[in-house]
């Protein structure tokens, strides 16, 4: 089992319902931290929407650099953080090709997490393990008014969406940090939007 997200770029309308639903469900206060980010990227050939959270990679860069041992990967592929252990070293943020790990400030996270080592430990998408374990889809998937998001086992998603391609830097450079390497095996499949003619 390898949990993955599917994203239909030809359907996404960059409405941010997924990202707001995510903040609301997980109780993330208003402020810069948002586990799922939506943007409309302007590149050659048009404008491309992308809704992306953690890609729960096969070989997670964050996990390997975390000297505190706060990041772990579940048998079902979900990459999770134990916030109590996090020491806010922030190497995970540096190494992640997608800039996924995030840290709140005092305003956004006024309450200290009980028993945590640091005031604002790393946070990121946890694939809604609370919901998954309860047989419910992740909140983003269940929220999308455009039915642009799906989730499931990576291989099964490939079968279900034969048009989808894996997330790679070649196809989706804007998903990556500028100098990032593309070697973590993201669990993300995307149906690409066709190019746009501008006249």
């Amino acid at each position: 089992m390898r949990y993955a997200f599917y994203f239909d770029q030809s359907r996404c309308m960059s409405c941010n319902t997924c990202s707001v639903a995510c903040k609301d469900w997980h109780g993330v206060n208003p402020g810069a931290v948002r586990w799922r980010k939506v943007d409309s990227h302007e590149t050659e050939g048009g404008f491309f929407n992308l809704s992306m959270s953690c890609n729960h990679c096969e070989t997670p860069a964050c996990l390997y650099v975390c000297t505190a041992g706060a990041i772990y990967k579940r048998d079902d592929g979900i990459v999770a953080v134990d916030r109590a252990i996090c020491q806010k070293i922030e190497d995970c943020k540096i190494e992640c090709p997608y800039d996924t790990p995030q840290f709140a400030n005092n305003k956004q996270e006024p309450e200290t997490i009980a028993g945590s080592f640091t005031r604002h430990p790393m946070q990121k998408c946890d694939f809604c393990v609370d919901r998954i374990d309860n047989n419910e889809p992740p909140i983003c998937v269940a929220s999308c008014p455009a039915y642009a998001l799906d989730y499931g086992d990576y291989a099964e998603l490939q079968d279900k969406y034969p048009d989808a391609v894996p997330l790679t830097k070649d196809d989706f450079p804007y998903a990556y940090k500028r100098d990032a390497e593309d070697n973590t095996g993201p669990s993300m499949l995307i149906k690409k939007r066709k190019g746009l003619k501008i006249t």
Binding site: S10, M13, S14, C15, S40, F47, A146, L196, K197, T199
Partner: peptide, 15 residues
């Protein structure tokens, strides 16, 4: 203005 509706649906944007 190429609004979101255009970004999602259009084959061609006539400015």
């Amino acid at each position: 203005e190429f609004v979101d509706t255009g970004v999602t649906l259009a084959d061609e944007w006539i400015k």
